[in-house]
Every structure is written in structure tokens, then in C-alpha cells.
Design a binder for these strands. Structure first.
Length: 225
DNA sequence: CGTTCGATGCACT
DNA sequence: GTGCATCGAACGT
């Protein structure tokens, strides 16, 4: 079993946490079973001065989790349909979070398919499609608004150290060796100059491959643990 | 390939 | 009333 990342992991500069998150595993256990995915794509939303951050208008009941303790989940409803999951970063009081956008499915693929399966017609989803995109990821992993504010060091869903395996599939690797690229965040019309989307270079599990410019490779090896 | 567009719910003005 | 940190079906080329 993966080891949970401690709250201190999240109580750091958000861009650093974002980079460190690539290659970690997301685990969620429910009555239905356990699903595990390796994080390959995230986006940072930092502070009231970031116009794309939900904290831009200042504190509200909705965005309150952003101002709370790091290492907790911020889940919200998007477009009335999709539930998007973030992890809160920075010291308490600094509103910032990281949106989980895509993962490489590792365990519980059948359960993911059942959760994703759109009613009626449809071929079986490929592994690559199960957790690609923030709305798809939460659906496949069974994450809902019920997880809002939950503490990842004691919740039944959490982020952890990745298994030691690496390099079996294209674009997969250990977080201590992850080569990441930075690009503009997807789906927003403001602050497009901020390249705060971080993805595992070359991963086929990343979303928006057609829609966005290739991530800029800037670096690097991330200090593990 | 590509682009458009409807579904859908809620926070905030 | 407006505008989303989206998705995928349905079309056009």
C-alpha cells in the first residue's frame, strides 16, 4: 500500500507542490472497491491575485476550504455537471490549491469503467480515457462533493507515494525522476500567461493533448520524500 | 481530422 | 440573470 503524504507536504509553495505531485498515486476506497491512479497532470490556482483562482473575489462560503488547512480537499461542482477535486496548499490562511486533472489508472479499472460507463450505447473505454480530464477523473475515482474539506491524511481517499515501478509504459515514471512540462491552464480565459499547468512529459494519459500547445519542458528531478 | 453546441446546477452580481 | 477550472455527441471538411 502507498504511504500517505503528510500535511506538511502540502504546506509549501503551490508550484513546488504541483511539481512534486506528478507521479504520486491517488487512492480511493469505497464499498465498491479500491481505485488507484498515478497523477500525470495538475493545475495550480494561487491566491486572491490570481484571477482564475476561486479565491479571486475574496472569501465566500463556497471557496472557504481554500483558506483552510493544507492537505484537505476542495471539491466543487462545475458547469452543473462535473465535480472537480483540488488539494489545498500553502499555510492556512493563504488561499491556494491544485486541481487534479488527469491520472494513469493503476488499479480498479473495471470499477472505473462502471462509474464512467455512459448509459446506453458506447464501446468500452480505453485505459487512457478513464481518468483523462478533471471531470472524468473524479467520476472514475468515485470522488464527489461529499469529499469536500476532507483531510487527505485520514480520508478514504488520499495521495501517496508511488510504487517503485517505472518505465513499463510510455510516459510513466517515478516521482523522484519525473520530467514535467509547464503550459497555460486549460479552460480559462484569464491569466493565460501564467503557465501553471504541470504535466508528466510524454504521458498519453494527459488531457488536452490536441487543444493545447505542447508542454514546455523546463526540468527536472524532484526531490523524493 | 476539425468545430460547435447542449446539458446542467449553483455561486455570485 | 450571467458565467463558469467540462464533456461528448453531432455535425462539417
Amino acid at each position: 500500500m502507498p504511504r500517505r503524504l503528510p500535511p506538511g507536504f502540502y504546506r509549501r509553495p503551490t508550484l513546488k507542490v504541483a511539481e512534486d505531485l506528478i507521479g504520486r498515486v491517488l487512492v480511493h476506497t469505497t464499498r465498491e472497491g479500491t481505485t488507484v491512479g498515478r497523477i500525470v497532470e495538475v493545475e495550480a490556482y494561487i491566491g486572491e491575485t490570481d484571477p482564475a483562482c476561486h479565491a479571486a473575489p475574496g472569501w465566500t462560503p463556497r471557496n472557504a476550504p481554500l483558506y483552510g488547512a493544507p492537505g484537505r480537499a476542495y471539491v466543487y461542482l462545475n458547469y452543473g455537471i462535473h465535480q472537480l477535486v483540488n488539494v489545498v496548499t500553502e499555510p492556512e490562511g493563504v488561499p491556494a490549491a491544485i486541481l487534479l486533472r488527469a491520472a494513469e489508472p493503476l488499479e480498479g479499472l473495471d470499477l472505473m469503467r462502471r462509474r464512467r460507463d455512459r448509459r446506453g450505447s458506447g464501446r468500452a473505454l480505453e485505459r487512457m480515457e478513464l481518468c483523462r480530464g478533471p471531470g472524468n477523473l473524479t467520476k472514475a475515482m468515485g470522488i464527489t462533493l461529499a469529499q469536500n474539506r476532507s483531510a487527505l491524511d485520514e480520508s478514504d481517499f488520499y495521495l501517496g507515494d508511488s510504487p517503485a515501478t517505472r518505465g513499463k509504459d510510455p510516459g510513466t515514471c517515478d516521482p523522484t525522476l519525473a520530467v514535467v512540462g509547464w503550459s497555460p491552464r486549460i479552460g480559462i480565459r484569464v491569466a493565460t500567461g501564467r503557465r501553471w499547468r504541470c504535466a508528466l512529459a510524454g504521458s498519453p494519459y494527459v488531457s488536452g493533448l490536441r487543444a493545447t500547445p505542447a508542454p514546455q519542458i523546463h526540468h527536472s528531478s524532484v526531490a523524493g520524500n
